[in-house]
């Protein structure tokens, strides 16, 4: 099974990454090798197996849906690349 350049370009789009021509070239080769290596798992018979969906037995851990005030709002916002009056500034989305 070979992965094509077109597929790499499609995956990059899904992952929100721009790749240069060189990167496309390189990642096509790398992904080919990595996926070939990954495909070794097909040698394992898993017909009787269920998937491991978590690393331990815990599931559906619930807590009360309560509002907790985060005291460090200023510091949170100060990490934003662009902000205005306590809001994140982004380019216009709607026309």
């Amino acid at each position: 099974m070979a992965i094509s350049k077109e597929e790499v370009i499609h995956i990059a789009k899904l992952a929100d990454l721009n790749l240069s021509e060189d990167e496309i070239e390189k990642y096509t080769k790398d992904m080919q090798e990595i996926l070939e290596f990954a495909n070794r798992i097909n040698n394992v018979d898993t017909s009787e197996m269920t998937e491991t969906i978590a690393a331990n037995e815990k599931s559906n851990v619930f807590r009360k849906d309560e509002v907790v005030k985060f005291e460090n709002r200023e510091v949170l916002l100060s990490n934003a690349p662009s902000q205005d009056e306590g809001m994140f500034r982004i380019p216009k989305v709607l026309n």
Partner: peptide, 8 residues
Amino acid sequence: KAQKVRTV
């Protein structure tokens, strides 16, 4: 498939 092999 990988999640199943994880179980194995």
